[in-house]
Simulated scan of single mutants.
Amino acid sequence: MPSTEADQSDAASDPVLLEIRADGIAVVALNRPEAANSMDLPLLTALHRALLACHRSDAVRVVVLRGEGRNFCAGGDVHDFLANIDRLPEHVKEVSSWLQMVTTAIIALEVPVIAAVNGYATGGGGLGLVGSCDFVIAGETARFRSAAVGVGMAPDGGLTVTLTQLVGFRKAVELVLANGTLDADEALRIGLITRVVPDDLLMEETYALAQVLSAASPQALAECKRLLWDGIGSSVAQGLRNEGVAEVRLAGSSECRARLAAVVARRPSAGSE
């Protein structure tokens, strides 16, 4: 947590920001707003470090995960994938491995994790984080999409397991294979998220829930969280392994390369939004 103006200036460029507040609420912010908080290796490794810092701190009672700027997380960084196109399977394997560690760390934390979703939550990065958090509060203009099929890849971040648990098998198949976009109200209706609030009240409502949780028995919360996740824990672990194999295999295909390039070609730059 920054303590001086110089520290704050340096921290402003970090891909992930961590603040542990006096009330026991740790705020973890994805900090690549110019790239819609899409995930590259620096962001993923920084996110993993922030989660481990929360795990080590006895002061943390609740974790709030949010995105800086207009979007929560746009999934994997397509530009980063194209920059490594000549070794894409190896690069995707490394990225997916770090995302798996992030997902595992969120689920393994003994404190509740609340995702505050603004804008888009897409791909194994955005939607995968939604699936691995304990609570998801979304602004009314939030949007949710699997997105993987659109670039010739498979979901990751444990999404192939958590999504079926959250919304049921039939809806999960539709969301992944048909690759549609859900608005916040529909995401709430099918059980993907916990609550929808006005955009301008997103963080206020998120912190209100965090304060309720921080006042509860930490031992009871930890046990309840563990028991609930253990009900599907072995499936999530196996799902993460299966996803990693599929991602690497698909990343080696010419179709995946072509679809990644097509996405970049038709997407406006973040600075022009």
Results as ranks from 00 to 15, higher is better:
H48N: 10
R87T: 14
V92C: 07
E34V: 06
V102S: 00
V92E: 01
A59D: 15
V16M: 04
A22V: 14
A22W: 10
L82F: 14
E90W: 05
R49S: 12
D77F: 01
K93T: 13
F81T: 07
N37S: 07
G76Y: 03
L43P: 15
A108I: 04
C54G: 09
V62Y: 07
V62D: 02
A46P: 14
A108W: 05
K93A: 13
A36T: 09
L51Q: 08
V64I: 15
H48A: 04
V62H: 08
M101R: 12
H48V: 09
N31A: 03
A35Q: 11
V28T: 07
G69N: 10
H79G: 13
A50G: 10
C73A: 07
K93F: 08
T104S: 02
V27Q: 13
L51M: 03
I85A: 10
P89G: 02
L43E: 09
L52H: 10
E94Q: 12
E34C: 03
R21E: 06
L30T: 06
G69D: 06
D40N: 08
L44G: 14
V78P: 00
N31T: 04
L99K: 01
I107W: 14
L44H: 14
T45C: 01
K93M: 13
P42K: 01
L109C: 05
T104W: 02
H79M: 08
S97G: 06
L18P: 15
V63L: 11
